[in-house]
């Protein structure tokens, strides 16, 4: 299902999609977060967050900068562990298993991540996409898997003749799609996107958004975005965070048309942030 010019799709259309997708919250949860608290040193960054992320849906996290949305995202694959003096409390279940007790390497293979700034490795396009497969000892044919991932990331046609070229030579939008392909290559169940379009131009943004619609057919996607139109266009569910608290979590059309919390309304109507 590819819709050309999705960048211009109005909000109404997106909400229609969400409704078409059925009663959204009823999809079985892939990730269940309960009573999550998170601290940087002595400073608490997340307060008692509980929510369920349904399987093969796209959930958007919105909120003013510094509200904790990126922090929350980084708890889902325990990427916070690369920072020092962090502490976490609560429970995060992936398919019923608590990730805090899981082997972190296995966890991150299941929960992929794409970062705010494109961060391809200084290797060829091919090697970038093959990286995750190589370290996991992929048994099939690498070139097929790389092609498949690049196709899923809607980049294949642009780079198929230059797979040996350094990924750093690509444009920003292409680099970000290499990073998405790299994450997709290991077939993650969940994909975390941390403002994936913030460093991209509008055309590249449209391409990435278009790609998101295809992704969520096979993948549970969680995306942080500072752009409310984007959240409205692509997500089924939206969570609004403020100062580390989860203020509202509802189906996207509902949250944007009839927010249940006055703070949500204030935010989406542009009164702060």
């Amino acid at each position: 299902m590819s819709s050309p010019g999705i960048g211009r799709v109005p909000i109404v259309r997106a909400s229609a999609r969400a409704t078409e997708a059925g009663a959204v919250p009823e999809a079985p949860p892939r990730i269940e977060v309960s009573h999550l608290n998170f601290y940087y040193g002595s400073k608490q960054a997340l307060f008692d967050i509980s929510l369920q992320l349904p399987t093969n849906r796209l959930t958007a996290l919105i909120g003013p900068s510094g509200c904790g949305k990126s922090t929350f995202l980084r708890t889902l694959n325990r990427m916070y562990e690369t920072q020092r003096h962090t502490r976490i409390e609560g429970e995060i279940l992936l398919d019923g298993e608590n990730i805090l007790g899981m082997d972190v390497v296995a966890l991150r293979r299941k929960v992929g991540m794409v970062f705010q700034k494109p961060n391809p490795f200084p290797k060829s396009i091919f090697e970038n996409v093959a990286y995750g497969l190589r370290i996991n000892g992929y048994e099939g044919k690498l070139s097929d898997a790389v092609e498949r991932s690049l196709r899923r990331a809607a980049l294949w046609d642009e780079v198929k003749d230059q797979l040996q070229k350094s990924a750093h030579a690509l444009s920003g939008g292409q680099q970000q799609r290499v990073c998405i392909a790299r994450a997709l290559a290991v077939n993650p169940e969940v994909l975390l996107l941390d403002e994936p379009c913030s460093a991209l131009d509008p055309v590249s943004t449209a391409k990435v958004e278009e790609l998101l619609f295809e992704l969520k057919e096979s993948c549970t996607v969680v995306m942080v975005t500072h752009n409310m139109q984007q959240a409205a266009r692509v997500s089924e569910l939206t969570a609004f965070l403020l100062d580390g608290h989860l203020i509202e979590y509802n189906p996207t059309p509902q949250l944007f048309t009839t927010p249940s919390d006055p703070r949500t309304e204030a935010y989406i109507t542009g009164r702060f942030g």
């Binding site: 082997d103 390497v105 370290i135 996991n136």
Partner: peptide
């Protein structure tokens, strides 16, 4: 797969 995983950890 399991053994490969253990090998990597080691």
């Amino acid at each position: 797969m399991i053994t490969r995983h253990r090998f990597r950890k080691i």
